[in-house]
Simulated scan of single mutants.
Amino acid sequence: MTNNAPCRKDLLCLINRVSFAVDDVKLFLDTHPCDANALAYFHEYSKLRNQALKEYAKYYGPLTIDTTMTSCTDRWNWINEPWPWQEGGC
């Protein structure tokens, strides 16, 4: 970890907020699949979520299987990191 690492707790809070937004709009899109504004919102927040997950994985280890390649290049080491709920969460 470098001195330029973002605050772990702040990054987890951001991930929680954008993940909630993505999940919420996914439910809306289930019943309104042609809503262009909702679809644009989904794409925007999905992109923000993916960026935040990649940044978290870069500094603290992956939270999802999708981001394991970012931080586990030589061995399966993410099990050694503190789990998100061990840090107090948001």
Rank of each mutant, 00 (worst) to 15 (best):
N3C: 03
N3L: 01
N3A: 00
N4A: 08
A5R: 09
P6S: 00
C7A: 06
C7I: 06
R8N: 11
K9Q: 15
K9A: 06
D10Y: 07
D10V: 02
D10F: 09
D10G: 09
L11V: 00
L11G: 04
L12A: 11
L12R: 05
C13A: 07
C13F: 08
L14E: 12
L14T: 02
N16P: 04
N16M: 02
N16D: 11
V18H: 05
S19A: 11
S19C: 02
F20I: 00
A21Y: 09
A21C: 07
V22N: 07
D23C: 05
D24F: 14
D24M: 13
V25C: 13
V25D: 14
K26L: 04
K26S: 06
L27Q: 13
L27M: 07
F28Q: 04
D30R: 09
T31E: 10
H32D: 06
H32N: 14
P33V: 00
C34F: 15
D35L: 03
D35W: 07
D35Y: 11
A36Q: 13
N37K: 10
N37W: 13
A38Y: 03
A38S: 08
Y41H: 14
F42T: 07
F42D: 13
H43F: 10
H43S: 09
Y45W: 05
Y45I: 01
S46D: 08
L48K: 02
N50T: 06
L53F: 03
L53P: 05
K54D: 15
E55M: 12
E55A: 08
Y56I: 01
A57V: 07
A57L: 10
K58F: 06
K58G: 03
Y59W: 09
Y59R: 03
Y59E: 02
Y60F: 15
Y60I: 03
P62L: 07
P62M: 08
L63P: 12
L63H: 08
I65L: 12
D66A: 15
T68M: 14
T68G: 12
T68V: 08
M69G: 15
M69N: 13
M69I: 09
T70V: 15
T70N: 10
S71V: 04
T73G: 09
R75E: 10
W76P: 06
N77C: 13
N77I: 12
N77Y: 09
W78H: 11
W78S: 10
I79W: 12
I79L: 13
E81P: 03
W83C: 04
W83E: 12
P84I: 00
Q86S: 00
G88L: 10
G88W: 05
C90D: 01
C90Q: 02
